[in-house]
Nucleic acid binder design. Structure first.
Lengths: 230, 230
DNA sequence: AACAAAGTTCATGTATACAAAATGCAAATA
DNA sequence: TATTTGCATTTTGTATACATGAACTTTGTT
């Protein structure tokens, strides 16, 4: 079994259930807890040094988020990620990212446009750093600006949640150096469309961006599945 | 205080937490539990005849669904419904309903098209019944066919969740008899577009449908808010 | 050796107990 | 009368105890 390198953020002043929730979620999203792995309350409780109660409440939230599935009288296990489920997520995200881009055209502030421009430049710079983590962070920052510009809380929450489902694959489309130029160009197109308030172009650019991401990820998935049969 | 007319569905073979979750959710969505009302665990536990544990776990799920908000060390209360939050929900739903319509064009079966046709006719018949409940049910049935036709589980879940958020207002755009013809026409347009596999038209029809719904609901909200100041 | 049955162990589902924080009320003081 | 302080009550947050059902192991029989 893996060493308990989980380190709950106890410094935060949150109810234990939320600390546990965040800890488990991160563990699932990063792949430390693998799909199919059972989440046994007592084990988790011992490992995290709390009682079963906060563990259970955290699991209830993970259940609703779709990160774990409940088997009656057997408990929770980490949800499987199938090609189909990833496709489903990306299909929805494609529509919502397009919506974000359109709404951003209407609602982004001058300041927001500047931030976006800065984020594009920052991303381009990051690609040269060759550090996948840095690149990924720059990518997220850029998208966050657009999503936040919609001013739609519900939309922000949904898009973030969908993005999280793909967390494990966040490096796939970034590690491929040959695609960096393409990514920069896509970002530039999105930025330009929003700056010009061209909703149609912005939506199309956002969709294209997701489509390319999907291609990379699906390639990766097939590789993984191919190498271990089925 | 209201009489306990909550009647949990004990006949179902579900963990108590799920029974409680469904019960509370329905109570919130129907307005039995009003926005701002505190959800106190012991009271709910006594009222539903269970202990605090299932209540707490149900509240955790309601929290993630956004139906209740948590105030630290004070517990849960029913989330307020503001005009803004409804607009946010409808904005997202508009995009997802359009996506559903587009996907349905590609993926609906012959059988599905027939069902859809039947549901349109059924809705038209229902409007003549003048019973809002019957009409609402027919409306939901029709939309369910389209959403299910997408074959996208995640999308189904999200659209249903968003639709639920509007549950309290489901009668608003149906009670207005003068709009029945319009609704029938809108449904017909959606059906025809999907039958012809005309994605653009289907998406536009779905959006128009939501836009009109939004108009009705917003009128109603302003009425409500106007009558009690602010 | 293989299979079946029974008992034991283990994990979940639920209830309850205990501690700490927050709220409300009352009394005392200015 | 208004305000503040302190005590009592309420309610959440967390831990633990108990019961039921499931899975596994062991033992006995063929």
């Amino acid at each position: 079994m893996a060493k308990d390198n989980w380190q709950m953020n106890m410094d935060e002043f949150l109810p234990l259930r939320d600390v546990v929730f965040n800890t488990l979620r991160k563990a699932i999203l990063t792949g430390e807890l693998k799909p199919g792995e059972r989440l046994m309350e007592i084990h988790l409780a011992n490992r995290l040094g709390v009682s079963r109660t906060p563990i259970r409440e955290a699991i209830r939230k993970l259940e609703l988020e779709g990160l774990v599935i409940m088997i009656p009288r057997r408990g929770a296990e980490v949800a499987q990620i199938t090609e189909k489920s990833l496709k489903d997520v990306l299909e929805v995200r494609r529509a919502l990212d397009a919506l974000c881009a359109e709404l951003a055209c209407d609602r982004i502030s001058e300041e927001g446009i500047n931030e976006l421009k800065g984020a594009c430049a920052e991303f381009e710079r990051a690609t040269k750093s060759k550090d996948a983590t840095v690149i990924a962070r720059a990518d997220v920052a850029l998208h966050d600006i657009i999503v936040a510009a919609t001013g739609n809380q519900r939309l922000v929450q949904l898009v973030n949640n969908l993005a999280e489902q793909m967390y494990r694959y966040r490096f796939v489309y970034i590690k491929d150096k040959s695609r960096h130029e393409q990514l920069i160009e896509e970002h530039r197109m999105i930025y330009e469309s929003i700056r010009k308030k061209d909703k149609g172009a912005a939506a199309e650019a956002a969709k294209l961006h997701i489509d390319n991401q999907e291609k990379s990820v699906m390639e990766q998935i097939r590789l993984e599945n191919g190498s271990r049969g089925k």
